[in-house]
């Protein structure tokens, strides 16, 4: 039995989902119904952060959000993180991950980028412990976090210097 239609905005674009089943998570709807597979499914219990998105500005695990509860919400996913409004072009955090070698298998990468982007929005110059806590909900099994921490430093430094120049 399908539920009532669900209207939500993802990365600034309105979507109407008509055939979701009860209990489907926002993650499932993004991936399987809207074709936005950038948010990943690694644990589906909020322990890995691979599915991290913003819902109405709040960083959450989309696997733990009931899709039906997001009616009328604004959702931002990795596909909307790019440097311009259409999500095209690389955001500074994306570029920093590439430059620092923070990507290996890449499965945790979208969720980490969402968390790091939020962190740097909240705190442009976080110290090491703050960064580690901010990404402690994002498990990475390949990198041991070293290059990721370097990427955060790099992105923070670049944001700082571009802010200075304005």
């Amino acid at each position: 039995m399908a539920s009532e239609p669900l209207n939500l905005s993802v990365n600034g674009r309105p979507h109407r989902v008509v055939d979701a089943l009860p209990g489907e998570s926002l993650l499932f709807v993004l991936r399987e119904r809207l074709g936005l597979a950038g948010s990943k499914n690694a644990c589906e219990e909020g322990e890995c952060g691979s599915c991290t998105v913003r819902v109405d500005g709040r960083l959450v695990c989309s696997c733990l959000v009931l899709a039906a509860a997001t009616d009328g919400s604004e959702v931002t996913t990795i596909e909307g993180l790019g440097s311009d409004s259409s999500g095209a072009g690389l955001a500074d955090v994306q570029q920093a991950f590439l430059d620092a070698g923070a990507v290996q298998c890449g499965f945790c990468t979208p969720g980490l980028l969402m968390a790091v982007d939020q962190l740097l929005d909240d705190d442009p110059a976080p110290d090491d412990l703050t960064v580690r806590e901010a990404i402690s909900g994002n498990l990475c099994r390949c990198t041991g976090y070293g290059r990721i921490l370097e990427a955060v430093d790099l992105a923070a430094a670049r944001r700082g210097s571009s802010d200075d120049s304005q």
């Binding site: 039995m1 209990g23 998570s25 219990e45 909020g46 696997c63 733990l64 009931l66 039906a68 509860a69």
Partner: peptide
């Protein structure tokens, strides 16, 4: 939702 994702919680009526 942890329970729902495992199929252990009926979310028909929320």
């Amino acid at each position: 939702m942890v329970e729902a994702n495992r199929g252990g919680r009926d979310m028909e009526d929320v």
